[in-house]
């Protein structure tokens, strides 16, 4: 990996300033994606800014009708959180199947969503639950946050602070993991919320997306059979050594049915 300068700010304000001063700087949260990326020389940041010194970025708390989880909260802490298990068990279950135990001990919520890997799990959780992302300067609906392949609406110097997850009436996540990486070949998060049914799909396309035909069908009847007549158009789906686009289209329906069954 190429050499870089290291910074460890003590506040979000300081981190934003460092991003402004160093044009090709990268933030490191848990490092579980950034470090492998640097090892492969797929990125060459002149400066790496470590967020682990900012203590108020970590933590889980109840907030009215939902949960607020800090950007630097490790996956393992979401898995083990009594609050998350009680209020949104589907989110704890999602976190429990990210990577492996050692990756979960370091990887963070903020790192996962800011990276927006097309096969990552958390983007489906945020989009499926209709979460809201708070940054150093604004709040963003999950529907607006994720743009496409490794792309979010975040500005170059913007830092994710926390995510607010509204508590759904019921929800579940079903994932078909790649057996080596544990990334989702296809993952589907289904939530029945006070404002309607939401179905978010990860792994299948260039980025996480909502499957509106399924949402409408499940709004009429929240049961796996309600999805039987829906055909997923495979034209825009991923096609690679792990799965063909037709196979992924098939998996979207299978995983959606499993998620609905688990949530029912």
């Amino acid at each position: 990996m190429y050499a870089f300068n290291y910074h460890k700010p003590g506040s979000v304000v300081e981190a934003v300033a460092l991003l402004g001063q160093n044009e090709d700087a990268k933030l490191v949260a848990g490092g579980q994606t950034l470090i492998p990326t640097l090892k492969q020389r797929l990125a060459m940041p002149g400066d790496v800014i470590d967020l682990s010194g900012i203590s108020d970025l970590s933590g889980i708390r109840e907030d009215g009708d939902g949960l607020v989880i800090g950007a630097m909260t490790r996956h393992a802490d979401v898995v083990g959180s009594d609050i998350v298990r009680r209020r949104i068990p589907a989110l704890a279950a999602l976190a429990e199947h990210i990577g492996d135990r050692q990756v979960r001990n370091l990887g963070t919520l903020g790192g996962s969503i800011a990276n927006n890997d097309p096969a990552a799990d958390y983007p489906a959780g945020l989009l499926g639950l209709g979460a809201t992302v708070t940054t150093d300067r604004r709040t963003l609906a999950a529907d607006d946050f994720f743009i496409g392949l490794f792309e979010t609406i975040l500005e170059p110097t913007e830092v994710v602070v926390s995510v607010h997850f509204p508590v759904p009436e019921r929800a579940a996540y079903a994932k078909f993991p790649n057996p080596a990486s544990r990334y989702a070949v296809v993952g589907v998060f289904v939530a029945k919320t006070s404002t309607g049914v939401r179905v978010a799909v990860t792994g299948a396309g260039a980025g996480v997306f909502r499957e509106t035909a399924m949402e409408q069908a499940l709004s009429a009847q929240f049961a796996p059979d309600a999805l039987a007549g829906i055909t997923i158009d495979s034209a825009a789906l991923n096609d690679d050594i792990h799965a063909s686009r037709d196979y992924r289209a098939h998996l979207v329906t299978v995983m959606a049915k499993r998620a609905v069954a688990a949530a029912s």
Binding site: G31, P36, D100, Q102, A180
Partner: peptide, 21 residues
């Protein structure tokens, strides 16, 4: 960060030491 031969405990938690600076 796949094979786990480098696992150590960092503040009591298992991590892959090849994927931590």
């Amino acid at each position: 960060s796949q094979c786990g031969a480098c696992v150590v405990h960092l503040d009591g938690r298992s991590v892959k030491a090849c994927t931590v600076f």
